[in-house]
């Protein structure tokens, strides 16, 4: 289960998507998400799905990785789909003699919502799979730069983000280790009543928090002892720059976005 959490995991290969500027990818993702939520007819959905598939293909990351990213949220997808199917008012379809009737509207809504969720996860994964955490936060920082004039501490925000992203795998690994150690002492995290399972979490969460605090402390000391100072005068080893490929990608993205809007207006 823990090994299925792939968000925030970078997939180090070479692909057109990997070579793009992180800013292009972040802005494109935002546009794509907006487009997915603006889509309100079948054609727009088909278009959004096709576009997402194109992104997946361009990323050269194996499709199985994307499926793995979906695994932890299958439950949410199916649960919301069931709620939608049975609790949306509309034309009733009685199937298998269920007490609560399904409705056509519910079925369609469920399909739409499920598709939206899946596309959302896949497209966000495409960003994190193809962008290393450092580039990602560099990109976010650059994009937030204009807000620095308004007094927003963009540099610090970006730093906090990169640290948070950096420590996701570490914490997962740590959780895995602690879970194993407690299992070796007979802990049972998988069966029993909900109350029992919540109680069983304490032996895992307490050591996890302690180690997270310890790590934070160590990191702070390490940064300070190397005279870390953020902010204005810090330069970078690798500056991020827009290339021709970003122009192509940007145009393609805008064309797709325009198409979704047009479909929304004319249909």
């Amino acid at each position: 289960m823990l090994k299925d959490i792939t968000l925030g995991q970078y997939f180090p290969i070479d692909s057109p998507l990997h070579r793009m500027d992180p800013r292009t990818k972040i802005l494109s993702l935002i546009l794509l998400i907006v487009a997915i939520f603006l889509a309100n007819n079948p054609w727009a959905y088909v278009l959004a799905a096709a576009f997402t598939l194109l992104v997946v293909a361009l990323s050269k990351v194996p499709v199985s990785m994307y499926f793995r990213g979906l695994k932890p949220i299958w439950f949410v997808i199916i649960f919301t789909a069931l709620l939608n199917i049975f609790f949306t008012p509309g034309t009733k379809i009685y199937l298998f003699g269920y007490r609560t009737p399904m409705t056509w509207e519910g079925l369609i809504l469920a399909g739409k919502m499920a598709l939206r969720l899946v596309l959302l996860i896949i497209s966000s994964s495409a960003l994190t799979y193809t962008t290393s955490p450092i580039l990602l936060t560099d990109g976010i920082e650059k994009l937030l730069k204009p807000l620095a004039k308004l007094g927003l501490p963009t540099f610090e925000l970006a730093m906090m983000m990169s640290i948070a992203i950096r420590f996701i795998p570490t914490l997962i690994e740590e959780t895995d280790k602690i879970m194993k150690a407690q299992k070796a002492r007979g802990a049972d995290f998988e069966s029993g009543s909900v109350l029992h399972r919540v109680k069983a979490l304490a032996p895992m969460l307490v050591p996890l928090f302690i180690s997270a605090f310890r790590r934070a402390d160590e990191l702070a000391v390490a940064m300070e002892s190397r005279c870390y100072q953020g902010g204005e005068h810090r330069t970078r080893l690798n500056e991020i720059r827009f290339h021709l490929i970003d122009a192509f990608a940007g145009l393609l993205m805008l064309a797709f976005f325009a198409a979704v809007i047009i479909l929304r207006i004319i249909l």
Partner: peptide, 16 residues
């Protein structure tokens, strides 16, 4: 797991 007791590397990190 009762018969085969396993003490992990740095086991003190699992005290709670």
């Amino acid at each position: 797991r009762q018969k085969v007791g396993l003490v992990f590397q740095y086991p003190e990190h699992q005290l709670f």
